[in-house]
Amino acid sequence: MISTDSDILCMAETWVREGRGVALATVTETWGSAPRPVGSNLVIDADGNFLGSVSGGCVEGAVVSEAIDVIADGNARTLEFGVADETAWRVGLSCGGRIKVYVERIA
């Protein structure tokens, strides 16, 4: 799929050059009805500002809070989200899909 996320990646570069802590989240796998395709990006700064999307707004909150930890410790990690599950993530994809999101620091 031809990406239209170019502005987001350019903005990520700008943010880092401005001295902000920045993380990039990428959808690496989807199963079932996932709202955003593999390769979709979300860019997050240390204050929780974000651009782009990895879902239809269902899991962005959780990705942003994990991303702030990634910015702090520099360790990339893979997050997995499924059908809404109170105990596991307290967020989920009400559409019934599952997604994997890779979160890494840009520095």
């Binding site: 990646l9 990520a12 570069e13 880092v16 050059r17 990039l24 890494e104 620091r105 840009i106 520095a107």
Partner: peptide
Amino acid sequence: MDLALLSAL
């Protein structure tokens, strides 16, 4: 990701 890599991309 290294910033230089993002720049190159």
